[in-house]
Amino acid sequence: MYDRGNGASNPSGTTVELLAAAGESAQALMAESLEARGSSLLHQSILKVLADLGPHARRDLAARVGAPPAEASRVLDDLQSQGLVQALVVNAGGRQEVMALTAAGTAARATALDHVSGVQDVLLASLTKGERAQLHYLLRRVCASAARSGGAHPASGAR
């Protein structure tokens, strides 16, 4: 945990470590919040991709979220059994099953975003509204730089 009085003599040398620690904390809190509701980060990643980018074939969706195809397929089956996604058969260049978000999936995604806001409030409790806005702006710039360098995908739809 970061403590202003105990920072390194070269704070810029620890910025990446602080970003990594903050990311790990955020991910752990989000995973805990989702698990309490019977969901996971992979469930939400799949719903996010379908909400943001539209229908995807199973294999393409697995690649997009960076999950092994078998694991992504298991989560898709779970989401389908909950009525959050549906399989559509598309005959374009051959028969292919495409997964799409349902209205219930859209609602579940909105609920998840509310929970993410709660996690954000916990993590950023010590910051003023202005500091939160500034942090958001700076992190979007950092993510864009990382994406340009090939290090990560840009944070689309970040709140």
Rank of each mutant, 00 (worst) to 15 (best):
N6H: 11
G7I: 12
N10H: 09
P11E: 11
T14L: 09
V16W: 03
L18A: 13
L19P: 03
L19H: 00
G23F: 01
S25W: 07
A28W: 06
L29R: 01
E32L: 14
E32S: 15
S33I: 07
R37C: 09
S39H: 04
S40H: 05
S40F: 06
S45Q: 14
K48I: 06
L50A: 06
D52L: 15
A57R: 12
D60M: 09
L61R: 10
A62F: 00
A62T: 03
A63Q: 13
V65G: 05
G66E: 13
P69R: 07
A70S: 12
A70F: 06
E71Q: 14
A72P: 04
R74H: 08
D77V: 08
D78N: 08
Q80M: 01
S81P: 08
S81V: 10
V85I: 07
Q86F: 08
V89E: 14
G93Y: 04
G94C: 05
E97A: 08
V98T: 09
L101T: 05
A103L: 13
A107W: 13
A107F: 08
T111V: 04
Q120R: 14
D121H: 12
V122E: 00
L124H: 02
L124W: 00
A125N: 03
S126M: 04
S126G: 10
E131M: 05
A133T: 06
A133H: 07
Q134Y: 02
L135M: 04
H136Y: 12
L138N: 03
V142F: 01
C143D: 03
S145T: 00
R148K: 07
R148S: 00
G151Q: 05
